Amino acid sequence: TTLHFDLDGKKLQYTGVSEEIARLVEELKRRGVDLKEIVRILEELLK
């Protein structure tokens, strides 16, 4: 799965993300978590 974000005018793309992580990101968005925080979490998970 590939995730795309537009953060402060920067286009971020994460490829090869598992379905689980993609679902987690969608859930965080639904809960109103700040996009910067979501990206920070995502980068930690993908290390």
Rank of each mutant, 00 (worst) to 15 (best):
R40S: 12
E27A: 08
E37P: 01
F5A: 01
K11E: 13
G9L: 02
E37C: 04
K29H: 14
L35H: 11
T2I: 12
R30M: 14
V17M: 04
L45Q: 11
Y14V: 04
L45N: 11
L46S: 04
E26K: 07
L7Q: 04
I21G: 06
E44G: 08
K29C: 12
I41W: 07
L42N: 00
L24H: 15
V17C: 02
V39H: 05
E43Y: 03
V39T: 04
L24Q: 15
E37I: 07
I21Y: 09
E43A: 05
R23S: 15
E37N: 07
A22I: 12
T2Q: 07
L12W: 06
L12I: 13
L12C: 06
E26D: 13
L24F: 09
L12M: 09
T1L: 15
R23I: 14
V33E: 15
V17D: 01
K10R: 08
A22E: 10
D8H: 04
D8P: 02
G32R: 00
L24I: 14
R23G: 15
L12F: 11
E20K: 10
V39P: 01
L3G: 02
D34W: 05
R31F: 10
I41H: 08
D6V: 08
I41Q: 15
E43C: 00
E44I: 10
I21L: 06
S18V: 05
F5S: 01
T15N: 13
A22P: 02
D6Y: 10
K29I: 14
I38Y: 00
L45E: 13
E43H: 05
L42D: 00
G32H: 11
A22W: 08
Y14F: 12
L12V: 15
A22K: 07
T1C: 04
K29A: 14
L12G: 01
V33K: 08
R30Q: 15
V25A: 05
G16C: 04
D34K: 06
V25K: 00
L42M: 07
E20G: 08
V17Y: 01
E19A: 11
K10Q: 10
Y14R: 00
K47E: 09
E20N: 05
K10W: 08
A22V: 15
E37W: 04
A22F: 11
G16K: 06
R30V: 15
D8K: 01
K47H: 12
L12D: 02
I38M: 04
D8R: 00
K10V: 15
T1E: 12
E37Y: 06
L46W: 04
V39F: 03
G32A: 10
S18G: 07
V39C: 03
E44Q: 09
L3W: 01
I21S: 05
L3S: 00
L7E: 04
L3K: 00
T1I: 15
I21W: 07
I21D: 10
E26M: 10
G32Q: 11
E26G: 09
S18Q: 06
H4K: 06
L35D: 11
K29Q: 13
H4P: 02
V25Y: 05
V39D: 00
R30Y: 15
L35N: 10
F5P: 00
V33Y: 09
V33F: 07
E27S: 08
D6Q: 05
K10T: 15
L46N: 04
V39S: 02
Q13F: 13
V33M: 14
